[in-house]
Design a protein around this nucleic acid. Structure first.
Lengths: 189, 189
DNA sequence: GCGATTTGCCTATATGTATTAGGCAATTAC
DNA sequence: GTAATTGCCTAATACATATAGGCAAATCGC
């Protein structure tokens, strides 16, 4: 029998694609096995469990998202950086809804430590360098930015904004603009 | 054999309690049947499916949350109303994490129409009456408030803020304060 | 090249959840 | 008290997770 050439890497990549197609919550070992045309048990040589697979997809998504954000931030500061960060974040979620959901998968401590979570935190703090905000306000601001961006994307993806005619793109711009003003006013000299 | 006295109402209430104990994603027909000491099939006389049960819990949570927010907003305006709204929202999520997660369950259109979703939207708009913000800015502001509050609660619940020593309560106050200032500055006379 | 070892995917099996069909007993209606 | 109803049951199907052990293909050692 010809071998399918399964590897942990390939399974996680295919799992990420599957997540974007059918939703992260519907990514199963069974569906992945069907996709590769192999039996379910065969996957267990490459991933320890369903949870392990999901963790792998989550780590991949966090990495990809961090790469995009890093790219977006390169050479920008202040309002520009804020807008680029916001755009990178929202675009990723819209292009890869399943991966984005995966990035929000609750990781156990070891996985979290090995994740790109630290890069994300660093980059959010980097944005604030353009605004002169000292601790502990800086941490408050980091949390606020994370909350707005994540919250907006989450509500938008779950259809929360579809009951009003107002263009979500315009709301997004308005919000980024407002946050810029807010951070500027919060400067601690 | 003695009857257990199952009703749709009781199942949904027990499901909500179960959600708070083990997480909304672990609420299953099986677990609920165990809790009542009956066989799994017995529940199907009262709920159509697992999805139906989850929808019921989601509707319950939305209703409860709307009640709390309505209570908190009564007799308040401006900054007071904003702070009360924020507190009601966050407190509910912390006291009832499973129900809160349920409130974010994607409802199908019919269920959404019958839900307290409309009340939530109305109440968020009511807060903005204290700030004189005209359309379409009002919708932008509604979306921003929803995003920040939901995003913050979601990140806090998933442990996103546990890597820094800064007290989440203080960040929350700082954010509410910032939003108040922001909305005040955005007045459209 | 060719035997030996490793590795990859298989079959078989056990467990848990969701769901439907149909049965019998407890409750309620008259 | 009999009859209709309702509530919970057993039984059966389908699908997902997970483990154990087998056989053949790829790879290693020479």
């Amino acid at each position: 029998m010809a071998r399918a050439g399964l590897t942990t890497e390939r399974l996680i990549r295919a799992g990420a694609e599957l997540a974007d197609e059918v939703g992260f919550e519907h990514v199963t070992i069974s569906a992945l096995a069907r996709r590769f045309g192999v039996k379910v048990a065969s996957l267990y040589s490459h991933v320890k469990s369903s949870h392990d697979l999901k963790t792998g997809i989550a780590l991949l998504a966090l990495e990809e998202l961090a790469d995009r954000v890093a790219d977006a931030l390169a050479g920008r500061a202040g309002r520009d950086a804020l807008a680029a960060f916001a755009a990178a974040y929202r675009d990723y979620a819209r292009e890869h809804p399943g991966r984005y959901a995966a990035a929000r998968f609750r990781l156990d401590p070891e996985a979290a430590a090995a994740s790109a979570g630290g890069r994300h935190a660093q980059m959010t703090r980097a944005i604030l360098r353009g605004y002169d905000i000292a601790e502990p306000d800086q941490t408050h601001a980091v949390r606020m930015l994370g909350s707005v961006f994540h919250g907006y994307v989450d509500l938008e993806m779950s259809g929360g904004f579809s009951h009003t005619a107002v263009d979500p793109d315009e709301s997004w711009s308005w919000i980024v603009d407002s946050l810029d003003t807010l951070l500027r006013d919060r400067t601690t000299p």
